[in-house]
């Protein structure tokens, strides 16, 4: 089993975000977390990732995770390519590097752009690098917070294709306000509502 959440309750500033939330997710598949703004979607991702530990209940996770943060969180002193390689592999061999390059070409990068530092990349480019970093890591669970944020609509379908393909091999949970993703077929839906 990929993730089992039991009786999860999270309060923040005397406000209860969710109470006794329980669900179980398998090893593979595409799962979307929906709900109005401020309901705790990102908080739920952070709890699953193990970043936020201030909650009651239990979260059992089976396997490594990759996380696409809402902010790009790229290392400013590394090139776009190195940001992906360094974070995704401990000792990348030529095959790993080639697979990263192939992924980045698919996400619309040229060789020249891959050598640029994050300060020389647009918001959309940084988002794609951060997404590539999450995808390239051979993790069992992929948590994506707003995966299509700042992306041109032409690239959204490519990202959706990649995410769908990856969901056959591992569990992907995403949060998105992008209406372009509303038509994406998901395997499970976690709907959060205000308490």
């Amino acid at each position: 089993m990929g993730i089992v959440v039991t009786d999860l309750t999270k309060t923040f500033d005397d406000k209860t975000l969710f109470s006794n939330l329980s669900f179980a997710l398998g090893d593979t598949g595409l799962v979307r977390i929906t709900g109005p703004s401020g309901v705790g979607k990102t908080t739920l991702l952070r709890i699953i990732a193990g970043i936020d530990k201030d909650f009651s209940g239990s979260v059992d996770r089976d396997g490594d995770i990759s996380y696409l943060f809402q902010e790009h969180r790229l290392l400013p002193w590394l090139s776009a390519l190195d940001n992906v390689i360094v974070a995704s592999f401990n000792d990348a061999d030529e095959n790993d590097k080639e697979s990263v390059r192939a992924l980045l070409y698919r996400l619309g990068f040229s060789d020249n752009e891959l050598l640029r530092k994050p300060s020389k990349l647009s918001g959309g480019m940084k988002q794609r690098i951060a997404l590539a970093r999450a995808l390239a890591r051979k993790s069992d669970i992929l948590l994506l917070d707003e995966p299509t944020k700042e992306l041109d609509s032409s690239l959204v379908s490519t990202v959706v294709d990649i995410i769908r393909e990856e969901s056959n091999r591992r569990l992907i949970i995403f949060v998105s306000h992008d209406p372009l993703l509303d038509t994406v077929e998901v395997d499970d839906l976690i709907r959060l509502s205000r308490i």
Binding site: I65, S66, Y67, F69, R73, A87, S88, N90, R137
Partner: peptide
């Protein structure tokens, strides 16, 4: 702090 969180999530080794 954001980069620190990132390196922890991506399991950077101490030397990395």
């Amino acid at each position: 702090k954001e980069l620190l969180e990132m390196v922890e999530i991506y399991n950077f080794t101490p030397s990395k």
